[in-house]
């Protein structure tokens, strides 16, 4: 039994991570680890970087092909895809967000990890509406690249 099946929280070991170089370019990190019948991310990718042999497969992303466009982030029904792009000591994390209020560029928001635990504050640098899902990009310290996966606007 995997730990996440008990807790709902993934660990880094459960994921196939991009390299430093790939992160600099900016790529989609897909946190989808189970064989569920779902494939909109494959259809959404304009460069065919995400592949799946059949609909129940786990999506496999070719980080070299991925351009970090974010189409898959907007379409993923599980809200399980995040864009991560590093620059020197900072990281830009784009998170699918479906709560109110929607933050504005320049706002300081609370960062949360996969457990919902607070990790300090970050600045919102981009807000993009994709239907009713909003994709919020925050800028923070590089060490949070694979840690922060949610934001809380209200308490900020």
């Amino acid at each position: 039994m995997k730990e996440y099946e008990k807790t709902g929280v993934l660990s880094i070991e459960d994921l196939r991570l991009p390299s430093e170089e790939q992160l600099k370019k900016g790529v989609a990190v897909i946190e989808c680890v189970q064989n569920i019948p779902c494939n909109p991310c494959v259809d959404a990718c304009p460069v065919k970087a995400i592949s799946m042999r059949n609909i129940n497969d786990i999506p496999v992303i070719d980080y070299d092909k991925c351009t970090g466009c974010g189409n898959c982030v907007a379409v993923c029904p599980g809200l399980a895809i995040f864009l991560v792009k590093t620059k020197d000591d900072t990281v830009f994390i784009s998170i699918p967000y479906e709560f109110l209020p929607i933050p504005n560029v320049g706002d300081r928001v609370e960062m949360l990890d996969r457990r919902g635990e607070k990790k300090g504050k970050a600045e919102v640098v981009r807000v993009r509406r994709a239907g009713k899902t909003t994709i919020v990009t925050i800028k923070t310290e590089k060490r949070f690249a694979m840690v922060v996966r949610n934001i809380r606007v209200k308490d900020a």
């Binding site: 039994m1 099946e5 809200l79 457990r115 996966r149």
Partner: peptide, 20 residues
């Protein structure tokens, strides 16, 4: 002993701080 639904649904509530 294990979560019944899809992990991605569990992850959405967990990262909001709801314990399972």
């Amino acid at each position: 002993p294990t979560i019944g639904g899809y992990h991605v649904h569990a992850a959405k509530v967990r990262r909001c701080g709801v314990p399972i």
